[in-house]
């Protein structure tokens, strides 16, 4: 993966997200001013950000565990490592030369492969790079790949796929096959879709034969609470007003919050080494009650699948699963 020509930029510490956002907004504005909407596959800088010696803080970990319904072990939940790496990924995206604007990027899918759980007292090196620009029917997607290394052991790899709406990938790219992603109805620039006028035709099909095994009662404060623990203070999660500005009726839940809830619902049966993958569909508007199904995989397949949807409209919020990794 990391080829010799990759430029490794080592940061002194995990950057603070507040400053990154300011730069991100400014960068997005510059990008908008430049109206450079076409990107080429090789536009991604061959840069890897590295932060050494990252350690989790016990209070931060506990807050995360309690919020997501994880048990209070000293093993870091896979979603918590994502939280630790998230500012580094953001720092990468606000660097000059990053071809896509931070503002308005939509998290459409996420995959984590955990070889083993990281312990609270372990120091991690976090490495983040961007790769794989793909054409998408609504824009261009990019994967932000974060790795957590303990000593010389790769223990955790997270791949977050973000969509930059309204951009196109230059056609002569070597990688033209659009990644099969679910309909990104949560495009912030397409409020009608977010409000549900589109996609209602999928309702009965999605709802058929889907029995919940649980439900999440998500209060209005869930966005702010996850924002506080994850540092992702994107106002569409914390402020109804800001959410309205982007076309949502109210604030929406963080995608990773719902993904991490699903992971917690699978519980200890997931083991320590697993692949946890999620595709995000309709955003969860807060407050709301979400129907959840967590089930053992059918037939020979091992692991669990999960799905979350609105019991009222039947529309899917996310689908995914956890399967043991060898």
């Amino acid at each position: 993966m990391r080829t010799p020509e990759v430029e490794v930029v080592e940061l002194d510490a995990v950057p603070a997200l507040g400053g990154l956002y300011a730069r991100g907004v400014a960068g997005s504005a510059r990008a908008a001013a430049a109206r450079r909407r076409t990107v080429r596959p090789d536009d991604l800088p061959a840069t890897e950000l590295l932060v050494r010696g990252v350690r989790a803080e016990v209070e931060h970990l506990s807050t995360y565990q309690h919020l997501l319904g994880e048990t209070g072990q000293d093993a870091l939940p896979a979603g918590f490592v994502h939280v630790l790496a998230f500012p580094v990924a953001t720092a990468l995206m606000v660097r000059p030369g990053f071809p896509l604007p931070l503002l308005g990027m939509v998290h459409v899918a996420n995959q984590v492969e955990q070889r083993r759980a990281v312990r609270l007292d372990e120091e991690m090196d976090l490495r983040v790079r961007a790769q794989d620009l793909h054409a998408h029917r609504s824009g261009v997607t990019v994967d932000l790949v974060a790795e957590a290394w303990v000593e010389e052991e790769l223990v955790w790899t997270g791949t977050s796929t973000y969509l930059a709406k309204g951009h196109h990938l230059a056609p002569h790219s070597a990688s033209t096959d659009p990644t099969p992603l679910p309909s990104p109805d949560n495009l912030v620039s397409e409020p009608q879709g977010a409000l549900g006028t589109r996609g209602s035709d999928t309702r009965s099909e999605e709802g058929a034969g889907r029995a919940p095994t649980g439900q999440w009662r998500l209060g209005g404060e869930v966005g702010r609470r996850y924002a506080a623990v994850s540092g992702d203070q994107n106002p569409i999660h914390t402020s109804a007003l800001a959410a309205k500005a982007f076309g949502f009726p109210r604030a929406i839940a963080h995608g990773m919050y719902t993904a991490a809830r699903a992971l917690a619902d699978v519980g200890p049966a997931r083991g320590e080494a697993f692949v946890w993958h999620v595709q995000f569909a309709k955003p969860v508007v807060l407050p709301s009650t979400v129907a959840v199904r967590v089930a053992r995989a059918d037939g020979e397949a091992e692991g669990f699948s999960f799905e979350a949807w609105s019991p009222r409209s039947g529309r899917t919020h996310l689908t995914g699963g956890v399967s043991p990794s060898s």
Binding site: P212, T213, W216, R217
Partner: peptide, 12 residues
């Protein structure tokens, strides 16, 4: 009466 792990009430 909700089950902590599922959020569903016993009746549900």
């Amino acid at each position: 009466t909700g089950e902590p792990r599922t959020g569903l009430s016993m009746g549900e």
